[in-house]
């Protein structure tokens, strides 16, 4: 239990996927303009991350590792994620049309979101157990949500301010992200203090 809480907090605050590991920068810059699209994208990412981990962890540990096929990890994982996203999309379309309407546009973008493949590989690299992997994936997704939602507020302010021409758009956003990343650095070490 303690370990799970440890993983969860450190994934959200300390090892934030977007702000310290630079995973999922594209959607971070792309959909953080508005709060509701940031939320929609994040929910979809959380769901896909947890499901992808639930699928890839058993594949690696029961199918690849026992036969020394670890090197097929990348190719299998990305195929599993692509298929999973496709299946979720079809499932939502059929059984939950309203949810599909709000999340559907973000789903296709998720296959190439490096945070999803990243978390699947990180779980294996860290040697987490199945449950801890799921917690890690969930925490990673929540961290993604926190970064996007916080940042959508920042961006609203940026859009309204008078910035030198050359810095308008992406450059200003990047520099704001740099300051946000600096703020998140303040959390480092906090988790050790809380749980150990």
């Amino acid at each position: 239990m303690k370990e799970m809480a440890f993983i969860l907090t450190s994934m959200v605050l300390v090892d934030n996927l977007v702000l310290t590991k630079f995973l999922g920068i594209c959607p971070f810059l792309g959909v953080s303009k508005k709060m509701d699209s940031a939320l929609g994208m994040s929910y979809a990412v959380i769901a896909v991350m947890v499901l992808a981990t639930a699928a890839t962890w058993p594949i690696y540990n029961y199918l690849l590792a026992p036969f020394g096929l670890e090197y097929l990890e990348t190719i299998l994982f990305i195929l599993v994620i692509a298929a999973l996203v496709q299946m979720i999309e079809m499932g939502l379309k059929k059984y939950a049309p309203s949810l599909h309407k709000s999340l559907g546009v973000y789903l296709p973008l998720i296959t190439t979101n490096c945070a999803v493949l990243g978390i699947a590989i990180l779980n294996i690299d860290n040697g987490y157990s199945f449950v801890n992997s799921l917690v890690n994936a969930f925490g990673g997704g929540v961290g993604f949500l926190v970064a996007l939602v916080l940042f959508s507020g920042v961006r609203r302010q940026i859009e309204r301010s008078n910035i030198p021409l050359a810095f308008r758009g992406i450059p200003a956003t990047m520099i704001a992200a740099s300051i946000l990343a600096m703020a998140f650095m303040g959390f480092t070490g906090i988790v050790e203090g809380m749980f150990l």
């Binding site: 702000l19 630079f22 992406i170 990047m174 520099i175 992200a177 740099s178 990343a181 998140f184 650095m185």
Partner: peptide, 9 residues
Amino acid sequence: APGGFFVLG
């Protein structure tokens, strides 16, 4: 991390 964002920006 912050330096990365800053330099690229």
